[in-house]
């Protein structure tokens, strides 16, 4: 039972890879159209110098963007729940962030902000920000009304109510936001790198993919793709683990239920 969670997806993966390899061999597909899985791994090892540093750069952007989204998103959510006025005035602009395609505004940001790393972080932050704002706001508002009356009756200060009631109530929503936002930060980082395009210092995985495309180095393209995917999955797993750590003992979503 316990291992099924890992085992089943693993079996699917093994089958998919076997099928992939089988097709490549059986139909004699050329590596510049679709390289086999073994070739991708070989390329990954061979080009690790290039790809490893690109991965590091992309992850760096992702990390800072994610951090910024979490901090900013939480602060904005706190501001929203402090007063209905603030929320009414500013929420539409938070939505604006969400609905504007990042590829459309990234060129502008890249022109305006001199430092390339900073401009990429800003782009990725914009992508990752909205789920943090909306989830945390929802969470801070989802206080059990009975408990809220109880706090009021015991003359709890604003601060006590925030720390002892609102923040714990918001935690499950906050962690839900983390899960979405972390993935979006990675996507935002890669998209922004695509738009930025040019090389120079600190090139990321997107740039490697672009270059590989120009040079028809398809195995390297796949290797870079693989790295992005693995990074995304690991981020998700990390967030799940954090969520379990924080909520595991009480919240329904993380508690182990008896069958």
């Amino acid at each position: 039972m316990k291992h099924q969670k890992w085992l089943l997806p693993l079996i699917v993966a093994v089958f998919a890879i076997a099928l992939w390899k089988g097709l490549v061999v059986a139909l004699d597909i050329k590596p510049f159209l679709l390289p086999g899985p073994d070739l991708v791994v070989q390329t990954l090892i061979k080009d690790w110098g290039l790809l490893g540093s690109a991965l590091f750069n992309t992850l760096r952007i992702t990390f800072f963007a994610f951090l910024a989204a979490v901090v900013l998103g939480s602060l904005i959510a706190f501001a929203f729940v402090q007063s209905k006025w603030i929320e009414t005035a500013f929420f539409p602009y938070a939505v604006l962030l969400q609905v504007t395609p990042i590829v459309a505004i990234a060129p502008l940001i890249i022109i305006w902000v001199k430092n390339p790393t900073v401009s990429l972080v800003i782009c990725a932050t914009i992508v990752a920000l909205f789920p943090m704002i909306s989830n945390t706001t929802l969470g801070l508002r989802s206080v059990n009304p009975g408990l809220a009356s109880y706090f009021k009756m015991n003359r709890a200060s604003r601060w006590q109510t925030l720390v002892r009631l609102r923040i714990p109530s918001a935690a499950p929503y906050f962690f839900g936001g983390l899960r979405i936002s972390s993935g979006l930060a990675l996507i935002g980082a890669v998209v922004a790198e695509f738009v930025a395009g040019t090389g120079g210092t600190g090139v990321g995985l997107a740039y490697q993919i672009l270059q590989s495309g120009y040079q028809l180095n398809i195995p390297r393209m796949f290797a870079a793709l693989l790295l992005i995917t693995v990074a995304g999955v690991l981020l998700f797993v990390l967030m799940n683990w954090l969520s379990k750590l924080a909520l595991g003992h009480w919240h329904e979503s993380e508690v182990k239920h008896e069958e």
Binding site: L147, Y150, F151, N154, R155, Q160, R164, P168, H251
Partner: peptide, 18 residues
């Protein structure tokens, strides 16, 4: 109306803490 994130002890202690 208990705080689900706190143990029984902390729940009972809440009014004193506040």
């Amino acid at each position: 109306t208990l705080m689900p994130w706190s143990r029984v002890r902390a729940n009972v202690c809440l009014p004193l803490d506040l």
